[in-house]
Simulated assay, not measured.
Amino acid sequence: MKLTIQLFAGIAERLGTSLLEYEYSESTLTAAHLKESLALAYPEAASQIRTSFLAVNQQYAPADTIIETGDELALIPPVSGGDGTGDSDTEHRSSPSEHRTQDGLYMITKSPLSVEATTALVITANHGAALTFVGTTREMTGEQRTVHLEYEAYVPMALSQMAAIGSEISERWPGVRCAISHRIGQVDVAEISVVIAVSSPHRSDCYDASRYAIERLKQTVPIWKKEIWEDGSEWKGHQLGPWNPMEN
């Protein structure tokens, strides 16, 4: 079985490629077996591979998922989600550097973000409350100075996961509307990396839904950030304990 596996962030950097061609000799292959086989084949990245999740056709795959010829595969290392459903559900708008879901509520772009534009997506006549969270690049973490951040995304899956967050919010807080915009590429100090806007008939749901959205974003959306310092750099992933994007 010949497989093509997309790589991101630290794994891609360690192996020197973003697209791995791999041949598996046995007829039946599960997600867990593929990960372990890759870890043995590439010992220099084994620890990163084992802490990653496999995405199959842009969905996080349980360990017993059967891999089929022609599946779209990606290794997803722990995500960062902008700390500070598929291609058919996305549109490439005026610029190839901007990607949105068809409803326009979820966007990934290389261009600077507009707080006002994202907030306007959730303002409706029947909602009396709107709340916007803005994440920016922080310069100092302790005594370490960040020069800028670099964000990378598995764009189609990231958009579908953003939309899934919106659906989860609608189920938990009926009537709440959500929009998320995230920037990729270089984001300088004090520039905006993510904007999350929510609106609802009453303010209490706004506070709860906004907090839920940013925490889920950091848990499930395949976006990674690389901190660039004056004397080095490092990919930053999930920093809230063991990472499991399939937990809810």
Results as ranks from 00 to 15, higher is better:
L3G: 04
T4D: 13
L7P: 10
F8E: 08
I11L: 10
A12Q: 04
R14S: 14
G16Y: 09
T17E: 06
L19H: 12
Y22W: 15
E23I: 13
L29W: 12
A32Y: 04
L40V: 09
L40N: 14
A41E: 08
A45W: 04
S47K: 14
Q48I: 08
T51I: 15
V56I: 07
Q58G: 06
Y60S: 01
P62A: 05
P62C: 02
I66K: 08
I66A: 11
A74E: 03
L75H: 03
P77V: 01
P78A: 09
G82T: 05
G84C: 08
G86S: 13
D87A: 12
R93H: 14
S94F: 14
P96G: 06
H99W: 15
R100P: 00
T101A: 01
T101N: 01
Q102W: 10
K110D: 11
P112Q: 08
V115A: 10
I123W: 07
A125L: 09
G128T: 03
A129V: 05
A129S: 15
A129H: 07
L131H: 12
F133V: 02
G135Y: 01
T136Q: 11
R138I: 14
R138H: 11
M140K: 13
T141C: 10
T141Q: 11
T141Y: 14
G142R: 07
G142M: 07
Q144L: 12
T146C: 14
L149W: 07
E150I: 15
E150P: 00
Y151E: 01
E152N: 06
E152H: 05
E152T: 12
Y154R: 02
Y154D: 01
A158E: 00
L159P: 00
Q161D: 03
G166C: 02
S167A: 15
E168Y: 06
E168G: 06
I169A: 01
I169L: 10
S170Y: 02
P174D: 03
V176C: 13
R177Y: 03
A179H: 03
I180E: 02
H182N: 04
G185V: 04
G185F: 11
G185Q: 08
Q186T: 13
V187K: 06
I192D: 07
V195E: 01
I196F: 09
H202S: 04
S204I: 04
D205Q: 12
C206K: 04
A213H: 06
E215F: 10
E215L: 10
L217I: 01
L217S: 04
K218Y: 07
P222T: 05
P222W: 03
K225T: 11
K225M: 09
I228Y: 08
I228E: 12
W229R: 09
E230C: 09
E230S: 14
E230Y: 12
W235R: 07
G241V: 09
P242T: 12
W243A: 02
N244K: 03
M246R: 09
